[in-house]
Design a protein around this nucleic acid. Structure first.
Lengths: 201, 201
DNA sequence: GTCTATATGAAGATAGAC
DNA sequence: GTCTATCTTCATATAGAC
């Protein structure tokens, strides 16, 4: 690791603080309702200063998403290092992690249908690269689990992947939590419906 | 059925056309990105005229949601009349219907986290009443299916209910459809993951 | 009830001094 | 790079004539 000059360390720390705030805003109210004014005031800087660090609101959201994907990769590393016995166990561990992040209020939620944001993300090579990297690692675990008979082959691996991704922004989690249930309980319930299904076996 | 005076029939037809447009907008871009200007122009009337029929943007969305719930109840009637052999079969039929509606671009999607809209809906007794009616009918089928051993008792009926509701706005449907898969195929895949789960049996 | 025209406010983005 | 002050756009909602 090359040591950065002090100035750049300060800049990096500030941008981290900004992305922190953005992440909270995205998790709490979503992209459309997030305002640059509120982000700025939460960080404690002027709105104009935000634009010295990030070109646009979309760029802010993209930064939050990229940091999340970075953390996801670190989590995948951690899970791999854990030496779990099966690919299914690894997939379960990832899903538990994403649900934990969401229940902790740290999952930036992108409205699935915002054209300006979607366009910005689809043009962001760093973002796309990270997304593909995560998808490919998970895809590998999925096909492995399928070939070992742990994950159903009734649907293609692609469908399994999207289903797992969807748990990261599943509104059921929030509803159950709002209903007064403990986060651990909520997670186990949704794990049960996701992997076990609703019908009896 | 009492016959309405002609004037009121016209008014009703116009409001139906408005709610049609709102429904399309909500399905396509969601509440936050829907604008009164666009709704008005789609209906072919002036924006100010909208406000003669509905008090606010929130009221428009609420009207669309109430009509959807009305249609859901009609669908529940239809399913009951079909004489399906088990409560599980009835639940499967409902979920297929909601997914079909979404894939047809007719499912108004409310951002789960919009305070002004949530507040308006929670203050709308007609909406709440319809929502409760639908929930209770489904809840009945669910407990019935659980007591007959068709639906898992590993999670409470409440969790089953929310899980079924969530399929109505599941982003996985859109992603798979955008990936070029036929709607019928998409629905059967998501049915399989929802009721069968991802893990092998 | 429908229209045109406008009030009002919010939010993304920028100018320009320091 | 940070600030204050401002520009610009756009969207909700309303005024007032017909």
């Amino acid at each position: 690791m090359a040591r950065l000059p002090f100035n750049q360390q300060v800049r990096q720390a500030r941008e981290d603080a900004i992305v922190d705030a953005v992440n909270r805003q995205l998790a709490g109210k979503g992209f459309d309702l997030m305002t640059m004014d509120e982000v700025a005031s939460e960080v404690g800087i002027a709105k104009a200063s935000l634009y010295k660090h990030f070109d646009s609101k979309e760029a802010l959201a993209a930064a939050a998403m990229k940091r999340l994907l970075g953390r996801a990769q670190a989590e995948l590393d951690r899970i791999e290092a854990q030496g779990l016995p099966t690919p299914l166990a690894r997939l379960e561990a990832v899903v538990r992690w994403t649900m934990r992040v969401q229940l902790d209020g740290e999952m930036p939620s992108l409205p699935s249908q915002n054209s300006s944001l979607r366009a910005a993300l689809m043009a962001d090579m760093a973002y796309l690269g990270q997304l593909m990297a995560v998808s490919e690692r998970l895809g590998h675990w999925i096909t492995e689990a399928q070939s070992q008979g742990q994950i159903t082959t009734a649907v293609p691996a692609e469908v399994v992947l999207y289903t797992l991704f969807a748990r990261a922004c599943d509104p059921v989690l929030g509803v159950l939590k709002a209903g007064g249930h403990a986060p651990d309980q909520v997670i186990e319930w949704v794990m049960a419906t996701t992997f076990g299904g609703l019908a009896t076996r």
